[in-house]
């Protein structure tokens, strides 16, 4: 491909999805304002919200990136999207999500004690983090495998589309699931 061709085709592939993420992220801001109502009911909740979104983004972003490399290497494709390479990657991603959410719950509990914040119990912290992370994780893993393999099937470069698509879907999913989990935790307690 010519040099000008490479720049132009990259530009054409990425720009639409980037513009879409901007519109979606403004909605993320609106949803985040909606969660603030629960901050008083579940003290300390605000400490884990950014961490939850960040951890999910990092774990699924890395998954997307590994799948991108795997597709370029030719070991994963649309026709071969449930093979052992994909399964190992998915297993790793799910385990990391689970471990990180437990860590995050404990970390939030400890830091709210250290900083002298009013806070909920350790159990509630971990429960909220784990439930949100598992729900968002399962959905996101399915989405990541689909978008990475399907985009390459369409002739697009998965490296160009997977991460932006994921970051939007991931942020929105995490907040929606978090709202549901928070309501559930308030309901059972």
């Amino acid at each position: 491909m010519s040099e000008k061709g490479l720049v132009l085709s990259t530009y054409r592939e990425i720009t639409p999805i980037i513009l879409l993420t901007i519109v979606a992220e403004i909605w993320v801001g609106v949803l985040l304002i909606g969660i603030e109502d629960f901050y008083e009911l579940l003290p300390g909740l605000f400490i884990i919200v950014p961490g939850l979104m960040e951890a999910r983004g990092n774990i699924s972003g890395a998954l997307g990136q590994r799948l991108g490399s795997a597709i370029h290497l030719g070991v994963v494709s649309w026709a071969d999207k449930f093979n052992e390479e994909v399964r190992e990657n998915v297993k790793a991603s799910m385990s990391l999500g689970l471990l990180m959410s437990v860590f995050l719950g404990v970390l939030a509990f400890i830091s709210s004690i250290l900083l002298g914040f009013k806070h909920m119990s350790l159990f509630d912290f971990v429960l909220i983090a784990v439930l949100t992370s598992v729900l968002a994780g399962v959905t996101q893993v399915v989405f990541t495998v689909f978008i990475a393999t399907y985009s390459s099937h369409l002739g697009l470069d998965p490296d160009n589309v997977t991460i932006p698509a994921l970051s939007v879907v991931g942020d929105i999913l995490t907040i929606v699931y978090l709202l549901l989990v928070v309501k559930f935790v308030l309901f059972i307690s």
Partner: peptide, 24 residues
Amino acid sequence: RYYDAREIIRESLPFLALIIVFSM
């Protein structure tokens, strides 16, 4: 095989934990 779940976890976990503490 290129990818092994345990290998990925072992490689990523300490760094992800560090990153979360840092960003908090």
